[in-house]
């Protein structure tokens, strides 16, 4: 109790005398920032998960040039990768809401009238487009030998895809995917423009409520940095595990011992 009070007094002292930032105000609203972080993480993780699920069949269709499908999917990825996420979100949120027919449809009440769903749909379609393209590239670069070997073992095309091509493609796509995850997190700030209280939304709320310039943004920034830091650690660990075969071989001490004998 004693330490807490002195800590707060210390914060007040800094805020009032030493710093242009009001740390006390940030401290008082920290709970709101954690709630905002939860919304940000929820949207990012769900969009990545659903987008990833959508991307797998689309990437396969693109890589194997399924007639008709491949062109249609290319058109979709081109449209979503060639336009800003902000515009896509506005289209789903403000654009669809303009139409009487959409507002009267069964989807309006539970889904499209809710900013959370509009944002999730836009984010999912956006990340699915990017993931499709680099996963397609990874599938196309599957070493010929792996495919031949699996054919020689008598694997059906489905088993081959499941056991050989996709796992191998996922590994090659892993470094590119870490970028996609971070981009999706950064893109999620767009949620705040359609009234959601995500991390940036809370930052803007704080700034708006107390007419501040920096406090809300800087606090949100620190939170984003923390999340990105955790993501990069997770990917570094995943790469260590799944891309072990690409690392330079470490000298095996026992082999060295044998060699000297």
């Amino acid at each position: 109790m004693e330490t807490e009070r002195t800590f707060l007094e210390y914060l007040r002292h800094i805020s009032e005398n030493l710093s242009p930032l009001d740390f006390l105000l940030i401290y008082d609203n920290l709970g709101k920032f954690f709630e905002g972080a939860l919304v940000t993480l929820q949207l990012t993780i769900l969009a990545l998960f659903l987008g990833g699920l959508l991307a797998i069949p689309m990437a396969i269709a693109r890589a194997y040039r399924k007639p008709g499908w491949s062109q249609a999917i290319w058109g979709y990825t081109y449209a979503f990768r060639g336009t800003p996420l902000l515009v896509q979100t506005y289209l789903f949120y403000f654009g669809l809401g303009q139409f009487e027919a959409v507002r009267n449809s069964f989807l309006w009440g539970p889904v499209l009238s809710d900013p959370w769903w509009c944002v999730l749909i836009a984010f999912t379609l956006n990340t699915a487009a990017y993931t499709t393209e680099f996963l397609k590239g990874a599938i196309e670069t599957t070493p010929e030998g792996e495919v031949e070997a699996s054919k020689a073992c008598g694997m059906s095309p489905f088993t081959r895809m499941r056991l050989v091509v996709l796992p191998s493609a996922f590994r090659r796509a892993l470094p590119a995917y870490s970028n996609e995850v971070i981009f999706t997190l950064h893109g999620s700030v767009i949620a705040s423009t359609v009234t959601l209280q995500d991390l940036l939304g809370v930052g803007r709320w704080l700034n708006g409520r107390y007419y501040l310039a920096y406090e809300g943004f800087i606090t949100a920034m620190v939170f984003y940095m923390g999340i990105v830091f955790l993501i990069s650690i997770a990917f570094r660990m995943a790469e260590k595990r799944y891309l072990r075969h690409l690392r330079p071989h470490e000298a095996d001490p026992s082999a060295q011992a044998n060699a000297t004998i």
Binding site: G97, S113, P115, T195, G208
Partner: peptide
């Protein structure tokens, strides 16, 4: 309570029924 960037957006969402 929903907070908007512009008053035009507030009106848009009011007419949209949000």
């Amino acid at each position: 309570i929903k907070l908007y960037n512009t008053q035009e957006d507030v009106f848009a969402d009011l007419t949209a029924g949000r």
